[in-house]
Structure formats: C-alpha cells, structure tokens
Design a protein around this nucleic acid. Sequence first.
DNA 1: GTCTATACTACGATAGAC
DNA 2: GTCTATCGTAGTATAGAC
Lengths: 195, 195
Amino acid sequence: MIDTTHRSTGTRQRAQQVALALFTEQGYESTSLRQIADELGINKASLYHHFASKEAILRSLFEDRGTEVADLLTWLREQPRGPRLLEQTVLRWVDTFTTEKLAGIRFTTANPLVVRGLADASGDRVGAPLQELADELVALLPDGGQEQVVLVRMAILSVNAAVQAAAQADVSDAAVVAAAHRAARALVGEIGGAR
Amino acid sequence: MIDTTHRSTGTRQRAQQVALALFTEQGYESTSLRQIADELGINKASLYHHFASKEAILRSLFEDRGTEVADLLTWLREQPRGPRLLEQTVLRWVDTFTTEKLAGIRFTTANPLVVRGLADASGDRVGAPLQELADELVALLPDGGQEQVVLVRMAILSVNAAVQAAAQADVSDAAVVAAAHRAARALVGEIGGAR
DNA sequence: GTCTATACTACGATAGAC
DNA sequence: GTCTATCGTAGTATAGAC
C-alpha cells in the first residue's frame, strides 16, 4: 500500500509519472535526468536517492505491470482448439486496453527500440510474454504462410497501430480503443477469409 | 549521375547507407558520428566534409524521396467522388511499397519521434504530405466519426504496421508487403462495412 | 530526502596541417 | 578528402554536507 500522507513520500511515483510523460513525448534518449528533476522541482542528484540509474527509472515503469498476457496465455492453453479460438484470443487481448492503459502503449510506440532492448530485473525481455502469445496464436493457423504470420501479429498489435495512427490526429482515447477493436476483428477476418 | 569511378567519391552515399542502417538498428540518438565513421573506415572529423552536422545526415536521407505522395494527391483530386475512391487510393498508396522501399519504413517505425520532429531544407515537416493525404481521405468519409478517422489512418499506415509486426519475426520482405496489402483492404472494408 | 559540488565520459563540432 | 588535435557542452553518476 502506498503512503501518500507525506508529500515527499510520493516523489518516486511522481518521478515515474513525469518520466513516462517525457519519455513518451521526447523519447528516452532525448530526455535528461535534469529535465525530469526540474519538472519535479528537485535537484538532479536527488533522483539517485530513488533510482540507481536512468535505466532503473525506465525499468521501474515496467515493474508493476499486470499479468494480463500470462493470464491470457494460460486461458488459451486450456481452451479446446477450434476455428474461432484465434479471433477470441486476439479480441480478448485487444479489449484488455482501456483508455487508462494507453499510456504504456504510447510509450512503446514512441520508443520501440528501447522497449525491444529492455530486460527486467530477472533478465527477461519485457516484450517476451507478448512474443510468446503471438507464437502460440501463429501455431493455431491451419496453414502457416508468412503473410498469415504477419497478419496475426498485426492483429495483436492493433492497439499499437491505432495509437500510432491517431498520434497526429485529434481524436479521443475512446475512439482509439474502439478503432483498435474493429481493426483487430477485420484483420482476423482477413486471416480466416479468402486470399 | 553518380560518379563511382573513384572510390572516395562515393563516401557521402556510403555514409548515408551506413547511417540509415545504424539509425534503424540502434536509433538516431543512440548512434554516434564516431560509430558511423568507424564503419566507413574514416575519421569522425572527415564526416564533416560531407555533411554539416549529424542532423544534416538525417535530413539527407529524406532528400531524394520520390514524389509518390504528391502524385497520388494530385490523382485523387482529379478523380470523381465515388464509393470506391477511398479504397482505390489507399491501395494505390500501399502498393507503392515494394520490398526495396521498406528500408525507409523501417527507419520511420524505429524512430517515430525523430521523423515527426524533422523538417526538410524548406522547413516543411517531412511527414506533412502523408498527413495531407490522410486528411483528404478522411474528407471522403460519409460520416466523420473519430473511429473512422483512426481506421482510415491505420489503413494508410498498413505498411508501417506490417513492418513493425514483422520486426521480431522471421519473415521475408515480400510477405510483409503482401500482408500490408491485405491488411489495408481489410481495414478499408471495415470502414465501409457495418458497425 | 534534498542539496552543492564535482568527477568522468562521450558527444557534436571546429581549426588547421597534409 | 582525410587526418590529428582540441574545444565546449551536456550527459550520467558519485561524494559528502545538511
């Protein structure tokens, strides 16, 4: 449980919020600790009381993630195979993303290389679980043509694509989420459909 | 015409190739001039004979782009309005991308913020033409709901999404292009289809 | 928990010889 | 056109007082 009684106690979390926002707007490499500290109203050196390094700030942003992917994987493996299982799983995944959870996606689409190269405290790539889900879904395909593989992965990444597509447009988060859902359905349909 | 008689004459172009590759793999900010120079087998300072700055290298990569977007815009504006015009235009755009032209897309998806903030020698954002195309296509929509706007933009960015989806998978460029085409068709269909 | 002060490094960039 | 040498800056990070 988080103690918010004393203002100073929340510095770590405020730093995470500020860092996430700046990393998303400007990029991880283009954001300096000085900038984060300034926005927090503290000294640059003080950040090191809360985080061991800049990368530690970054990694901390991935620490408290939910177990959605793992849960979905477990669910998927328990399901009987069937022609609708691919679509069901993809939509379950896409519908995980409510408007509040778009911040993480925005960070990822803004810093793809950073995320790709990032490992958590256990040394596991942070993108590994989603990769695993993708592989499992590809295995459901009747024929494993390369086009199909790409389409499956595109379907999974519909939310990312929607966020990116909306980046330059003035649309609500709700519209982004709704568009992502429809896109995922259309893409899954294309996989199953004629070619 | 490019003189390739003397080895040294090609240094500028070799530098562009090396820079494009490194920027794509590691990101623009994470790539130093020293690294580019090393890969070229020349001194860091020598790069400044060919380019005025690191950003000049970056901008040079966008200099010799074709006029595909502008041409497509011209074509679009000459067409009679019709229910198939949106689909036709999107597919014309997506089919612009052959396997050789994926390198630019890979760079863009790896460095979205860099591209977004980049202006050419005339001060125009390099992404402006595509933005214009998107706006024009959105104007074709019978109802301009925000979801539809996102879906149109997703359709245009199908190649980008396909490249990103394939980034971690072992698929051929041909499969990426083919998947992008099918995705674009599916997304356009979703726009026109029932909701 | 925050500060000042500082170390160390790497970067982009320039000057000038060859 | 490439080199050596160097400049100035900004970055991450650390030491130690308060």
